[in-house]
Amino acid sequence: MYPFKILAAACLFTAGLSSAVNAAQCGNNAGGFNAWKSAFAKEAVAAGVGQAGLNALARAQYASGTIAADRNQKSFKYSLSKFMQVRGADTIVAQGRKRKARDASFYTALESRYGVPAGVIIAIHGMETAFGHFMGDSAVVSAITTLTYDCRRSAFFEPHAIGALKLVDAGAITNTTKGAKHGELGHTQFLPGNALRYGVDANGDGRVDFYNQADALASTANFLRQKGWQPGIGYQEGQGNFEVIKQWNAAGVYQKAIAIMAARIDG
Rank of each mutant, 00 (worst) to 15 (best):
Q226I: 01
Q226Y: 04
Q226K: 09
Q226T: 03
K227H: 11
K227W: 05
K227P: 00
G228Y: 02
G228V: 04
W229N: 00
W229A: 01
W229V: 01
W229E: 00
W229C: 00
W229R: 04
Q230V: 14
Q230S: 12
P231T: 08
P231W: 07
P231S: 11
G232K: 15
G232S: 15
G232R: 15
G232E: 15
G232F: 15
G232Y: 15
I233D: 14
I233Y: 14
I233K: 15
G234F: 12
G234I: 10
G234M: 08
G234E: 09
Y235C: 11
Q236D: 14
Q236E: 13
E237N: 12
E237S: 10
E237G: 06
E237V: 08
E237L: 11
E237Y: 10
G238F: 10
G238Q: 12
G238Y: 05
G238C: 08
G238A: 09
G238T: 06
G238S: 12
G238W: 07
G238I: 07
Q239P: 07
Q239D: 13
Q239W: 11
G240Y: 14
G240A: 14
N241F: 13
N241P: 04
N241V: 07
N241I: 07
F242Y: 14
F242I: 04
F242M: 05
F242R: 10
F242G: 09
F242D: 09
E243R: 15
E243T: 13
E243I: 12
E243G: 14
E243Y: 11
V244D: 02
V244W: 02
V244A: 00
V244E: 00
K246E: 12
K246W: 09
K246Y: 08
K246F: 10
K246C: 12
K246S: 12
K246P: 06
K246M: 13
K246N: 13
Q247S: 13
Q247E: 14
Q247T: 15
W248T: 02
W248S: 02
W248K: 01
W248A: 04
W248Q: 02
N249L: 05
N249P: 01
A250Q: 12
A250E: 08
A250N: 10
A250F: 10
A251R: 03
A251P: 03
A251F: 03
A251I: 05
G252W: 11
G252R: 13
G252K: 14
V253M: 06
V253W: 01
V253E: 02
V253G: 01
Y254V: 02
Y254N: 00
Q255F: 08
Q255R: 15
Q255L: 05
K256S: 06
K256E: 05
K256M: 07
K256T: 06
A257F: 01
A257Y: 01
A257M: 01
I258W: 00
I258E: 00
I258Q: 01
A259M: 09
A259E: 05
A259K: 04
A259Q: 04
I260E: 03
I260D: 01
